[in-house]
Structure formats: C-alpha cells, structure tokens
C-alpha cells in the first residue's frame, strides 16, 4: 500500500513537472508571466500604504500584520494553482464529459484531474507571498510556521474549490458559483477580520473557509497559539476529506460523454 501511495505521488509530481516544462518552452512568456504577476500583486501595496497614512491600524491590524496576511493568501493561492489548477475547471470537465480521459488512466482519478494543469502565473503569486513574508522578518520559526500555513491554505483553497466544483455532478452553472465563491474567499481573506462584525463575520467562518484557513493562521503567526494551530489543522483535514467524499459520491452519477479526447 505504501508503494502504491509512493507511486501515486511520483506520478503526480511528474505530471506537475511536465506541466511546468511545457510552459517553459517559451521562456520569455514564462518569465513575463511570473515577473509581472509579482509586480501585479505588489501594486496592491499602494492601497495599504494609503490606508495606513490615514490611520495607525486597519481593523486592529498593523501594516506588518496586513503584509503577513497578504503574503499568506498570495502564497496559498499560488501553491494551490501550481499543484492543482485543474480544480478550477472541474465543472467544465464534468458538464462536458471530459472526465472520460482521466477515468481510463491507471491512477487515482481525482489526483490525475487536479494535477493535470499548472498556472504559471501562480509561481509569481507564491514568490510574492514568500518575499513579502521574508520582508516582515518573521524569524526562522515564524517562517516555517508560515510555510506550514501556506500548505494548509493551499489545501483549504483546493478543497473548497473541489467541493463547489463537484456540485456540477448534480447541478448546472456551478462554474459561476465556484468562481464567485473563490473570488469572494480571496477578497474577504485579504482584508483584516476586524472590519467585519456581527453576522457577516459568522458567515465568513461558516460559509467560506476564510476565517479558519486565512485569518486564524495570520493570528497564530502574529502570536503563536498551539490550540488554534491544531484547530486550523483539523479544520483543513475535515474540509479536504469532505471535498474528496463529495467528489467520489458525485462521480458515481457521472454520465460519460461522447467526446473523443486523448491525453498524451
């Protein structure tokens, strides 16, 4: 069983590697995508410099804490889109019968689907997140904690996208819902939780994984709390298990299309 898992991971790793190598055929485009994504992400810093000129804190966050939050969100989103970018087009695969090509392959369907695409610009997001957090000087321990939270954030982001995308097995137009909810998660996640109060705050913990996957990790990075760290870990594992279960439950309903497609 261990060998099977090892082989599975090796196949996934090779899939991602070849995705990146394919994109690197045109080196100028590859580099432009990465560098300009870093610049694109960095340009939003202007907003925070403006806001911190007006007040010393925004939603109870200092500038350093906001930058750490941004670094965490950008790196999590980036890692998710490097490893599992196909999750964003899952509704299209399901609705148009494009899953057939993955079903006949001798590897786990879900992992095969998720790792079949890499967004090169996401490397820029990941780089930006790491650079931003390094500029905040979190220390060696803090940096490793950040890396752990980036992995958890990427898993939470992917799981949430998978959960919403898998609803396409039952309903149509889930691509729009998936896109809007993920954008909502990023938009809410990049602002301090202190500005949201009342019911909205509750919804952002229950309806979207913003609170547990992004805000709480940012709090733990600012002031370590072992119990909260374990709570975040448990939450991400639970969300991932639920997403995988919904996908395989939905896969039983999948009706094959008559689309002829080859994956080389």
């Amino acid at each position: 069983m261990l060998t099977a898992a090892k082989n599975q991971l090796r196949v996934c790793f090779l899939s991602i590697k070849y995705n990146i190598m394919r994109e690197m055929v045109n080196k100028v485009t590859f580099l432009t995508n990465v560098v300009f994504m870093v610049l694109n992400d960095a340009s939003i810093l202007v907003q925070w410099f403006i806001l911190f000129r007006l007040r010393d804190d925004v939603g109870g966050y200092s500038l350093r804490e906001v930058l750490m939050l941004w670094g965490l969100v950008a790196a999590s989103f980036g890692l998710s889109n490097i490893l599992f970018a196909r999750v964003l087009s899952l509704p299209d695969l399901i609705i148009n019968g494009k899953l057939d090509a993955f079903l006949v392959q001798p590897k786990k369907v879900l992992l095969g689907v998720l790792t079949s695409e890499t967004r090169i610009s996401a490397i820029g997001d990941l780089l930006y997140g790491v650079i931003l957090v390094c500029l905040c000087k979190p220390g060696v321990g803090g940096f490793f904690l950040f890396l752990l939270f980036v992995i958890m954030g990427a898993l939470a982001f992917t799981a949430f996208a998978l959960l919403l995308g898998s609803l396409s097995f039952w309903f149509v137009r889930m691509d729009i819902l998936q896109n809007q909810m993920l954008m909502g998660m990023i938009n809410f996640g990049t602002y301090p939780d202190g500005i949201f109060q009342g019911d909205a705050r509750v919804l952002l913990y229950l309806l979207m994984p913003v609170g547990m996957a992004l805000w709480q990790p940012a709090h733990v990075m600012a002031c370590f709390d072992g119990k909260m760290f374990l709570a975040v870990l448990g939450y991400v594992l639970l969300l991932s298990v639920a997403a995988v279960a919904v996908f395989y439950r939905g896969l039983r309903r999948y009706a094959s299309g008559n689309l002829m497609e080859a994956r080389l």
Binding site: L51, Q180, F196
Partner: peptide, 24 residues
C-alpha cells in the same frame, strides 16, 4: 440572467469597502 449572477462579486466588493471605510 447570466449578468445578474455577477452581482454577487460586485456586492462582495461593495460590502468590503463599506465596512473598510466605515472603520476608517
């Protein structure tokens, strides 16, 4: 109807900025 589905993203932005400026 497809256009109306995009209102959610617009509402999210406006809600965030409403809260943000409410704080500032």
């Amino acid at each position: 109807a497809n256009v109306a589905l995009g209102f959610f993203s617009y509402f999210v932005f406006i809600y965030i900025y409403n809260r943000l400026w409410g704080y500032m």
